[in-house]
Measured scan of single mutants.
Amino acid sequence: NQASVVANQLIPINTALTLVMMRSEVVTPVGIPAEDIPRLVSMQVSRAVPLGTTLMPDMVKGYA
């Protein structure tokens, strides 16, 4: 089972991601792979992401 990136806190719209905002977790459906966490740092979210939400490619500007 592949771990995905999950929000560790509420991430407001247009916030630049930092390591403390993200954790890896095995979830369904699968989201952005956990190994991409270093690449996500400083990228902005395109919408508010609630705590515990799996990050999907369309939620991060410039990821897809």
Rank of each mutant, 00 (worst) to 15 (best):
S24T: 11
T54K: 05
A48T: 11
V26F: 11
L17P: 02
T28H: 05
D58Q: 11
L19N: 10
V20Q: 07
M56Q: 09
V27D: 02
E25P: 00
P50L: 13
I37H: 03
N1C: 06
L55G: 00
Q44Y: 11
V45P: 02
V20G: 14
T15A: 07
P29T: 07
T54W: 01
S46G: 13
V26K: 04
D58L: 07
V27L: 06
Q9R: 08
Q2S: 15
A3M: 10
N8G: 13
E25S: 07
Q2R: 03
R47K: 13
S4K: 01
N8Q: 11
S24A: 13
P33D: 08
P50V: 05
P29W: 04
L19C: 06
N14V: 03
S46F: 08
V41I: 14
V6I: 15
V26I: 08
V49N: 01
S42Y: 10
T15F: 07
L40H: 00
T54N: 02
P12T: 11
P12N: 08
Q9P: 01
A34T: 13
T28A: 14
S24W: 07
V27I: 09
T54M: 03
S46C: 05
G52P: 02
T53A: 13
S4E: 00
M22L: 14
Q2T: 12
P57W: 11
N14P: 00
T18V: 07
V41M: 05
L55F: 12
A3H: 14
A7M: 04
I11G: 01
L19G: 08
N8V: 12
L17T: 00
K61L: 10
A64F: 04
S46N: 13
V27C: 06
T54R: 03
V26R: 03
P29R: 03
I13W: 08
I11F: 02
S42C: 14
V20I: 08
E25D: 14
D58R: 07
R39F: 12
A48E: 14
S4T: 05
V5K: 00
V49P: 02
L19R: 11
P57Q: 08
D58S: 11
G62S: 09
S42A: 12
A64L: 13
V41T: 07
T15E: 08
M59C: 04
Q44N: 07
A3V: 06
N8L: 05
R23D: 07
A34G: 15
P29A: 05
N1K: 04
M56T: 13
A34Q: 07
T15Q: 06
S46I: 15
V45S: 12
A16F: 05
A7Y: 01
Y63C: 05
I32A: 01
V27F: 03
R39T: 08
V30K: 05
S24K: 06
P57D: 09
L19A: 10
M56W: 08
N14H: 08
P12K: 07
L19S: 09
A34R: 04
L17A: 00
I11N: 01
V45Y: 00
S46R: 10
L17V: 03
V27S: 05
I32P: 00
S42L: 07
D58K: 07
L40E: 00
L55E: 02
N8M: 09
M43Y: 10
A16I: 06
L40W: 02
N1G: 15
N1A: 15
S42M: 08
G31W: 02
A7Q: 01
T18Q: 08
V5E: 01
I11P: 00
M43V: 05
L51Q: 11
Q44I: 10
Q44C: 15
A16Q: 13
V20A: 10
P38H: 11
A7C: 04
L40K: 00
M43R: 09
Y63Q: 04
P50D: 15
G52Q: 05
L40P: 00
V20H: 11
V20S: 14
V5M: 01
T54V: 10
A48P: 15
M22R: 00
I13T: 09
T54S: 04
R39S: 10
P33T: 12
M56G: 04
S46A: 14
K61P: 11
E35Q: 11
I13S: 09
V5D: 00
M21R: 03
V27Y: 03
K61S: 14
Q9H: 09
V26G: 04
P33G: 07
P57E: 13
M59S: 09
S4I: 02
I37S: 05
T28I: 05
P50H: 14
P12Q: 11
T54L: 09
Q9I: 15
Y63K: 04
S42H: 07
P38R: 09
I11C: 03
